[in-house]
């Protein structure tokens, strides 16, 4: 069969030919620059470092990358339905599964690119502003209970947050496929995400076994970097298994529905 990568290339073209995509990149870069410079300017007592600013940027701004990717995911499937272009896209010698897969891959690539842009720009800029420093471990640099090198620690933080992002984006990709409405997919997945964070905080205080299997308790994987176990004695391994379960469910529903559905827009 003809090169599948051409389909991914098409999806990338559709993402990057939109002006909105470039605004998203610009917003991330502006935040990195502004936060870094402000941190330097207001660093009166000299406690700021490359690692602390990088870590702050990551913990406050990664959410934005998640939201941006959710917006792009909604456009990717629901947008094609509402514009009617889905009809021209599907009447090609490709199975629906592969067309959907190309969209999904392009989406994860987009999130990965945004993450890398944020990681590199915040690292380079703050390296210039603060210098590398002499902290040997994340413990020395950030005061967390972790003995990896500071850069390797930051990389782990990004990877774990990326896994959390994949879960939310897969959820919104599913909602986008189910409802064929971009607004609904964005709204609902963001609602579930934020409501889940709040509710899981409350629920985790309850002493029921089923609470351990809620998706939202496991999205914040980087909490395991500082300690082995957290509330409810959860471990990284357990969290990852729960996430895999949800992931398979989301993917199965998405592909099943997309393959079966009559296109009648």
């Amino acid at each position: 069969m003809y090169n599948f990568l051409q389909l991914v290339r098409n999806e990338n073209m559709k993402i990057y030919r939109r002006i909105g995509t470039w605004i998203m990149f610009a917003i991330i870069l502006v935040i990195v620059v502004v936060v870094s410079i402000l941190s330097k300017v207001f660093d009166d007592n000299g406690t700021g470092s490359l690692w602390s600013v990088m870590n702050n940027i990551e913990s406050f701004t990664y959410l934005l990358i998640t939201i941006f990717t959710v917006v792009v995911s909604a456009e990717s499937v629901a947008g094609e339905f509402s514009s009617g272009t889905i009809k021209l896209l599907l009447i090609r010698p490709w199975s629906r599964s592969k067309i959907l897969l190309s969209k999904y891959i392009a989406l994860l690539q987009f999130a990965l690119t945004l993450s890398i842009v944020m990681l590199i720009s915040s690292f380079v800029l703050n390296l210039v502003l603060f210098g590398y420093g002499d902290a040997k471990t994340a413990n020395e640099a950030l005061g967390v209970a972790n003995n990896s090198g500071p850069f390797s620690y930051m990389l782990q933080v990004y990877v774990l947050d990326y896994i959390g992002l994949i879960m939310i984006v897969t959820l919104s990709f599913m909602l986008s496929t189910l409802f064929r409405s971009g607004g609904l997919a964005i709204g609902l997945s963001m609602f579930i995400y934020f409501f889940g964070i709040i509710a899981s905080g409350l629920l985790s205080m309850l002493d029921y076994a089923w609470v351990d299997y809620l998706l939202f308790l496991h999205l914040n994987l980087k909490q395991y970097l500082g300690s082995e176990e957290i509330t409810h004695n959860l471990t990284m391994g357990f969290s990852l298994s729960v996430l895999v379960g949800y992931y398979l469910l989301f993917v199965a529903i998405t592909w099943y529905v997309f393959n079966r559905r009559d296109v009648a827009t």
Partner: peptide, 22 residues
């Protein structure tokens, strides 16, 4: 099928390129 809906934010050529890759 019904109206010829294309990707409006792309040029005509980019639209054709898109479908030609498939």
């Amino acid at each position: 099928v019904e109206n010829p809906e294309m990707y409006k934010y792309m040029t005509g050529f980019q639209n054709l390129l898109h479908f030609s890759r498939m």
